[in-house]
Design a protein around this nucleic acid. Structure first.
Length: 785
DNA sequence: TGCGGTGAATTTTTT
DNA sequence: ATTCACCGCA
């Protein structure tokens, strides 16, 4: 992963002045449009590149880097290019390397905020009270640590879970707040004891010689703020700074950049305020909105020519995002004339939606309605929440449609991988208490709560780590029986493995030995659960991943920052992913299911951050639509199972915001919950089924409905037929009698099997047998659509 | 100590 | 629905 020899680079950067080099030819400029070209050629001073979706941002960005070098403004190691993900960093490296060819010595500094901070922090660890070989904790370690502190503080960790505290601390760190800087307004958080715990947590980390992700930024910012000499050094080294996805920066990252750039002001930030979708984890759209005030005299360049999407798709996306108030404003345009409108379709429930999309994908693969056959690789389903994926996976598995899920649980976050790594960690650093705790009784070896408490006590009494404490405890005969015997075996194991490591044993063989001798491999071999085989497979992969590193230590250092989603398999597949995961990608055909109020926009988002949340949801919708090149299909369902309960759904308010001229409606409004103008009572959170039904009936008289009705009539024999449900076939019978076919807003159609007063027992076609109140059902002839 | 049953919680996700 | 954590029992 790291291809720089850090210390060499730093030294080089220090000793070199930016002497001008002979200008080189610039053929890459010819391929750029005027705006892109301006963004590439405005090399000095602050530049804000507002790059709309699909406007060739990456091309401009890499060209700019290459141009800086070619014009002799800087040597490669005087340029800093920051990205958010390792993937983005890797891609940029590849592309720049390609453009430069083999003529230039070295590449610019390219990496994520976090990976760059690790490098800086290792050089100046002592200024943060750490040793340079500090470990980086992942979320899991972090939470376990916090849990201990919370319990030690006598706080009920049920009412005040460690996960919540971790979130609060993360939030503070994102805002570059050290414990002493936490504002008074936040003092009440976590039962008025948040700052106290935060303080203790930081102390504990220092003792463990460890940092969490937030610390990487926070420590470096603090060092920069307190040590002018260090800051001055980095300002000299990073003479040109380039930041991708600037709209995603948080306060700490913003401060980091400002500190580095405020002197020479050669900073180019690239981003799109309309694609800021990470507010919930601390990103501040304000950073990009404020750029011109932060850097007076900044050149703002807008990339607005879109090379990806049809005019209809662009128009729909633009109209939607126009409903947001706080934005810088851009007008995407395209040369293209061709293309289909967006399609909008409603379904009965989530399963129907998945079925329809599956059929549609197969049809597009074959080539339909005058369109050429498409590859499954060119199609994607983008969902708001990952639980929506299941319906698609179930359906696609049953019809044998190949798919890949992007995102999902990361390799290094899996239980077995973390366990294995904990063994490695203890072998490499016997003081790693968190790792020791994790595996001391994994696999189960009879070292339970009691034994572990004794170990911890012994460690505390002697002021040593847990492993050493365990040894002292055993030598003193303080732990007998099975636990004592097993612990001895484990300690001997670690002693042996550490010795092997020091003796220079090949680290791959060593890793295998550790996993075997510790009984960890056997643990999964004996496990009969269906995913045991997969876990063993993952362990094998882990060992294989070691090949790329020289030793265990090097491996562990890097893994903390990497999240690879490997094993790309070449065969054609439809992609399924969340909208968040889709940012930066594009597909000729995109399906956007689940556009229902509460799901998308997410109820929680709106509850927690109000209008701000709603605007972020809208940006998410914008990101979704703009992923599409040729075809974009939005859909919603009238009923959806939410946490096992059937719920009637209302079409998303975003659907109303789509410009009708650019949308082809496949479902007549009213059907399955309505299309445009289904003027349902959205303001209220809880609406009774009856009220909803009435409101929906009212929608028949709304202007939106009439408008839609006339539009639908213009398309005789259209695809509307596709979704008209057989179950709607009339069979009028009186409701509320045994045998009557009825309709219930949440559960759908069913037959009454018993009547007790005003309570009916109904055998629903979809939801099975339920007891319902009679006033909530109607005979199906009365169904309002 | 470890298993199995019951109850509560449940976005989005990178580093 | 499904997962996960915790409690009570063997």
């Amino acid at each position: 992963m790291t291809d720089h020899d850090d210390s060499r680079l730093f030294e080089q950067a220090a000793s070199l002045s930016a002497r001008a080099m002979a200008a080189r030819p610039t053929p890459y400029l010819d391929a750029l449009n005027p705006a892109q070209r301006a963004a590439v050629e405005t090399l000095d001073g602050p530049v804000l590149m507002l790059a709309g979706a699909g406007t060739g941002k990456t091309r401009a960005l890499t060209a700019r880097l290459v141009h800086l070098l070619n014009m002799g403004r800087a040597r490669p190691n005087e340029i800093l290019a920051v990205t958010f993900t390792n993937k983005a960093a890797r891609e940029m490296k590849t592309r720049v390397a390609e453009m430069l060819g083999e003529t230039v010595e070295g590449l610019p500094w390219m990496g994520t905020f976090h990976s760059l901070c690790v490098k800086i922090l290792r050089r100046h660890a002592e200024l943060a009270g750490l040793k340079s070989n500090f470990t980086i904790l992942d979320t899991d370690d972090q939470i376990r640590l916090l849990k201990q502190l919370i319990q030690a503080a006598g706080i009920d960790d049920k009412r005040w879970p460690a996960r919540m505290m971790a979130g609060i601390i993360d939030n503070w760190k994102n805002r570059a707040l050290t414990p002493e800087n936490v504002p008074a307004a936040d003092a009440a958080l976590f039962n008025h004891r948040g700052t106290e715990i935060y303080e203790q947590y930081q102390q504990r980390l220092r003792v463990l010689n460890a940092v969490d992700f937030g610390d990487l930024l926070l420590h470096v910012v603090t060092i920069f703020q307190r040590h002018d000499d260090v800051l001055a050094q980095y300002r000299r080294w990073f003479r040109y700074i380039l930041v991708d996805e600037y709209q995603d920066t948080n306060v700490a990252q913003y401060l980091w950049l400002r500190l580095l750039a405020s002197e020479h002001r050669n900073i180019c930030c690239v981003g799109d305020d309309d694609q800021s979708i990470y507010g919930w984890r601390g990103a501040e759209v304000g950073n990009i909105l404020r750029f011109e005030q932060d850097f007076p005299g900044a050149t703002v360049i807008r990339l607005e020519q879109n090379y990806r999407s049809t005019p209809h798709i662009l128009a729909a996306a633009s109209a939607l995002i126009a409903a947001n108030e706080s934005r810088l404003g851009k007008t995407l345009w395209t040369d293209r004339q061709d293309g289909d409108k967006l399609r909008l379709i409603g379904h009965w429930d989530g399963e129907d939606e998945a079925r329809w999309i599956g059929e549609e994908i197969e049809a597009m693969q074959r080539g339909t309605r005058g369109h050429a056959p498409m590859s499954l690789d060119d199609m994607a389903i983008l969902v708001r929440a990952s639980h929506q994926m299941r319906a698609f996976e179930d359906r696609f598995l049953s019809i044998g449609l190949p798919y890949r899920v992007i995102g999902g649980p990361r390799f290094y976050e899996r239980m077995e991988i973390r366990d294995a790594m904990a063994y490695f960690r203890v072998t490499v650093s016997p003081d790693d208490d968190l790792a020791f705790e994790r595996i001391v009784n994994t696999p189960k070896r009879g070292i339970g709560d009691v034994a572990q408490r004794k170990i911890a006590q012994a460690a505390r009494d002697n002021g040593v780590g847990l492993l050493e404490g365990a040894r002292i405890l055993l030598d003193a005969g303080g732990l007998g029986g099975k636990a004592g015997k097993e612990l001895r075996v484990l300690l001997d194991g670690f002693a042996r493995w550490s010795a092997m490591m020091r003796a220079g044993e090949n680290h791959i063989a060593l890793a295998e030995t550790i996993l075997d001798e510790s009984g960890y491999t056997a643990h999964w071999q004996n496990d009969k659960s269906p995913d045991a085989a997969g876990r063993l497979e993952n362990l094998k992969e882990l060992v294989k991943a070691l090949e790329e590193f020289e030793n265990l230590q090097g491996f562990l250092e890097h893994v903390a920052l990497i999240m690879e989603n490997e094993s790309e398999d070449a065969s054609e597949k439809v992609s399924i992913m969340t909208l968040h995961a889709a940012k930066g990608l594009e597909f000729p055909a995109v399906f956007l299911p689940g556009w229902e109020d509460g799901l998308f926009p997410s109820q929680r988002s709106m509850d927690e951050t109000g209008l701000k949340g709603l605007e972020e949801e809208r940006r998410l919708a914008y990101v979704g639509i703009t992923r599409a090149g040729e075809f974009c299909t939005i859909s919603f369902a009238a009923n959806r199972r939410v946490y096992g309960q059937w719920q009637a759904q209302i079409p998303s308010r975003f659907i109303d915001e789509l410009p009708e001229d650019h949308v082809e409606v496949l479902t007549p409004p009213g059907l399955y919950g309505g299309g445009y103008g289904a003027a349902a009572p959205r303001a209220e959170r809880k609406v009774s089924a009856l009220e909803e039904r009435v409101a929906r009936a009212d929608a028949y008289n709304s202007p939106g409905w009439k408008r839609m009705q006339s539009r639908t009539r213009q398309r005789p024999g259209g695809a509307a037929a596709v979704v008209i449900d057989q179950r709607a076939a009339p069979a009028a019978e009186p409701a509320h009698e045994i045998g009557a076919r009825i309709f219930h807003q949440k559960f759908g159609y069913g037959r009454v099997t018993a009547v007790e007063g005003d309570k009916l027992t109904v055998d629903f076609e979809k939801a099975g047998e339920k007891k319902v109140v009679a006033s909530f059902v109607t005979g199906e002839d009365e169904v309002p659509f």
